[in-house]
Nucleic acid binder design. Structure first.
Length: 486
DNA sequence: TGGGGTTAT
DNA sequence: ATAACCC
């Protein structure tokens, strides 16, 4: 990167971005500051206060809706607003509003525990996700008004790359020097001082303006849809997500590069890093790695020999707050699935199984019709109970004949019967259904989703379609998705 | 624990 | 097809 700088030697463990070649982001004066910052890395190997301009070029916002399901229910029925509210799925309170949290109700608490904490708790069933899904997409589509770079994570989180919006505001002098909302300040014993003057590259201004954009977005989201959310603002997805959680609910927090090390250290356990799940956590524990700091200080080469090169490098970078993953524009979903779980002995016979399959399919077919695509594949996933122990999930899938799928409709009973038969044969493939069994959960998924062919013949027979409008509009939607552009 | 999703191998 | 990850 610094070809003209001969005295500079990159410390081997801190070669973070071998592929980054462009530093055109920095002017000539800040270029020396850049080097200054990197010398600091040499001075104390555990800190990375340096401004690394290419890495900091983006402005990313993470939007996290406050207790999403509860908000949707309160929107639908305002009488619930001032009551403690829990959303129930089977015998679990999956989430609750903040009034309920005052009583000590938490996410994923059993019904029994929740009622003990809060006897007046109002419960709404949240097993049918239809309405949540609709509101979820309404929110993502609202966010698309700001930038096409919106990525969904679950139903209630979105990443936005607002770099160009920020650039516009800077060019148009449409900003101030004040950060909107909270600024993350050092909380733990890292060497980060919180001294803003350390942050001297252009990202300081971009992130500041980013906080102003985020604030506008959150206000507009509340005015237009009535939903409150938290936002985290920084220069990559990892940091935006992590910092947004610092002030909840309905607040936003901004993170500048000079406090990244402190934020990462403050997480404590490696499991707190999004991307490190329970399986990776166990592997790391077996290596004596428990905290983010442990992971940062572990020799990268040793980690590589344990986890393989790509995984080792990935999580090692995450531990330092480095994440170059781009914001991927969302499109239509890749799978459409429906699932139900059965406690006790609700699903032990073929008749039971057939009934469960049927109701899953009826639901799915409606959704597939709304989606307006054809499913190329059907997958059945189940979870069995064998001598009172939950087995792992098992699945089988099969192709769906296009001739069958093109006739799909909630009214075409013969098609439904054929799908039912196919699903049952998938069940047979998983285990011998003539022997006793107990199924705790079934999931049916339609995947390999393909846009319906819109050729001149179907256009001709389609009742509402006007040929003149058709070619334009279909192009529009096909290219919104990620995988159909070939 | 529930009812969804995605990506990597 | 499974196993990891996310909410």
């Amino acid at each position: 990167t610094d070809s003209g700088d001969e005295e500079w030697q990159e410390p081997i463990d801190l070669v973070m971005h071998p592929h980054i070649t462009n530093v055109d982001d920095v002017g000539s004066s800040s270029r020396s500051v850049f080097k200054e910052g990197r010398r600091k890395i040499l001075a104390s190997s555990s800190t990375q206060n340096a401004c690394r301009p290419s890495d900091h070029a983006r402005t990313i916002v993470h939007i996290d809706v406050d207790c999403f399901y509860a908000q949707v229910e309160m929107l639908r029925n305002p009488e619930l607003k001032d009551k403690p509210l829990g959303i129930q799925q089977k015998f679990i309170v999956v989430t609750c509003n903040y009034k309920a949290r005052e009583y000590g109700v938490t996410k994923l608490m059993t019904l029994k525990d929740a009622k003990e904490k809060c006897p007046q708790l109002v419960l709404v069933s949240g097993e049918d996700l239809t309405n949540y899904r609709h509101v979820s997409y309404k929110i993502s589509e609202f966010l698309l008004k700001y930038t096409p770079l919106v990525e969904r994570l679950g139903f209630d989180e979105n990443y936005l790359d607002i770099s160009s919006l920020v650039e516009q505001r800077i060019q148009g002098n449409d900003f101030t020097d004040e950060v909107k909302g909270h600024v993350y300040t050092p909380t733990c014993s890292s060497s980060d001082t919180g001294d803003m003057s350390v942050c001297t590259c252009g990202c300081r201004q971009r992130i500041t303006v980013g906080s102003q954009v985020a604030d506008d977005i959150r206000q507009a989201l509340f005015e237009e849809i009535g939903i409150t959310c938290c936002a985290g603002i920084s220069y990559n997805k990892l940091l935006a997500k992590l910092v947004g959680e610092r002030h909840k609910p309905n607040q936003q927090t901004t993170l500048f590069p000079h406090c990244v090390q402190d934020l990462m250290t403050s997480l404590g356990k490696v499991r707190k890093i999004p991307g490190i799940g329970s399986a990776m956590m166990k592997r790391l524990e077996s290596l004596g790695i428990y905290t983010v700091t442990d992971l940062q200080n572990y020799r990268l080469n040793d980690l590589k020999s344990q986890l393989g090169e790509s995984q080792a490098e990935h999580i090692h970078r995450l531990s330092m707050g480095i994440d170059e993953d781009m914001v991927h524009t969302y499109g239509k979903p890749q799978t459409i699935s429906d699932e139900d779980s059965y406690n006790y002995k609700k699903c032990c016979t073929l008749v039971d199984a057939r009934g469960k399959i049927r109701s899953l399919l009826l639901n799915l077919i409606k959704r597939l019709e709304e989606d307006d695509r054809l499913a190329g594949t059907m997958r059945l996933t189940i979870c069995r109970i064998i001598d009172n122990k939950f087995r792992n999930r098992e699945s089988k899938q099969c192709p769906l004949p296009p001739s069958l799928m093109s006739k799909i409709s909630s009214k075409a009973d013969d098609v439904i019967q054929r799908l039912e038969a196919l699903a049952l044969s998938l069940l047979q493939k998983i285990f011998d259904t003539s022997k006793p069994f107990q199924i705790a959960l079934m999931n049916i998924a339609f995947c390999n989703l393909q846009e319906k062919p819109k050729n001149s013949i179907s256009l001709f027979f389609s009742p509402k379609a006007k040929p003149s409008e058709k070619s334009n509009q279909s192009h529009d939607f096909v290219c919104k998705g990620r995988s159909n552009c070939s």
